[in-house]
Nucleic acid binder design. Structure first.
Lengths: 214, 214
DNA sequence: GTTTGTTAACGGTACCGTTCCGTTTCCCTA
DNA sequence: TAGGGAAACGGAACGGTACCGTTAACAAAC
């Protein structure tokens, strides 16, 4: 796309408009759901005319799917040489901090909620958010399995489903939820999954890992 | 409530109207979500005047929460003397059949999706649907744990979260899903949880268990 | 000056929560 | 047995708001 091809004639599109629209669409989607989001409100919130939206996306579902897709943050980058248990416990605090945020919690819930009626949105989330994280995690699980750090009968995919699913389930549960509670919960899940808590080397501190969760 | 207290004067409310309204509200909620459901449409679908709805429930959220609450089916009744593994594998087929139904799948997704913006609906589901099932299952898990049929470090609540969460996660995943696939998946989850597959006694057939799921 | 982007305004539809109808169904008293 | 009162019923309409998808007119970039 950065290829030579001549620039199309006429006035080029404002790239800032794309970003503003996607951001506004995501905010409204998180707060009001698909059915409660209208192109008109997205346009108003983005400070843009309706036609500016319609020109780029043909409808609500397509727009929201694009917004979800654009919302993914930096791809995960797990250290391949660190044992799974060390990674898990080391990242637990940062993980908890991240997924407990109301905005994240609400977005996950919304995406889940649309899976039946608007599969495109769920598919966008799954492809651009969930799958990359699973792909990054899988080799660590397989290595742990090969080294005997996990029960022999472990199926990596099912294990990931169970861990992510449990966290998701916990997030969706009614009632307040703070980061400390969630951290404890994460550790319980790791333990239940069969991971041994690593004994922290003296002076070693938990190493934050950016962007994770179900 | 069946107590003596005199019947209030005037025409009594039509109980059929309650049922029709709740049914219509649940259908519309499943199909269009909270934000896409209007009292007006509920009334029309139920063949009832708007006022008949407003007389009973003060607003949309309250109505839908009541509809979700009323949609719960017969309480589970697990045989306390059967080993957990036998119950799990015996009920897997019926379970799979049940939770794969589009209506169930969609309802779970919708409820999950409202957990952030409309906690009352999620709370109704949790209290009247999830909790009773967990309460029925817990003693079986504790017994299995005591008998050594589960890993010693097992935390019953976390285990239930992981099993239910995994299934939920699988339900929300995009793409088609048939009962046979789901049955295999359920069995994978049971195995991953640490349950040993029971060797079926000759002539013994899977025993259906009514109404389960996340 | 041609192409495209942006904005403002269009008519039409749906829903809101409320308020009237005229009717129906029950309880209580005369 | 005959009435009268109280409440619920379906249906229609209220003014007000929001959104739909499109079109016409102005502005900007090439």
């Amino acid at each position: 796309m950065t290829a030579p091809g001549r620039r199309p004639p006429g006035r080029p599109r404002d790239p800032g408009a794309d970003a503003a629209i996607l951001r506004a669409a995501l905010d409204l989607f998180i707060e009001h759901g698909v059915e409660g989001t209208s192109i008109e409100r997205v346009a108003k919130a983005a400070g843009v005319g309706k036609l500016t939206v319609y020109r780029r996306w043909s409808g609500k579902e397509e727009l929201i799917a694009a917004a979800v897709e654009a919302a993914r943050d930096d791809p995960v980058d797990l250290p391949a040489d660190t044992p799974l248990a060390a990674v898990a416990w080391g990242a637990a605090a940062a993980q908890a901090e991240h997924i407990v945020q109301p905005r994240f919690r609400a977005m996950v819930a919304r995406v889940l909620g649309t899976s039946a009626s608007h599969p495109a949105i769920m598919a966008a989330y799954w492809t651009h958010y969930v799958e990359p994280r699973r792909a990054a995690l899988r080799p660590l699980i397989e290595r742990a399995l090969a080294e005997g750090a996990l029960p022999a009968h472990t199926d990596p995919d099912v294990l990931m489903d169970m861990m992510a699913g449990a966290v998701l389930y916990r997030l969706a549960r009614p009632g307040p939820l703070d980061a400390a509670t969630m951290r404890r919960y994460l550790e319980d899940v790791y333990a239940q999954a069969g991971l041994e808590r690593p004994r922290p080397a003296p002076g070693e501190q938990s190493e934050p890992e950016r962007g994770g969760g179900p």
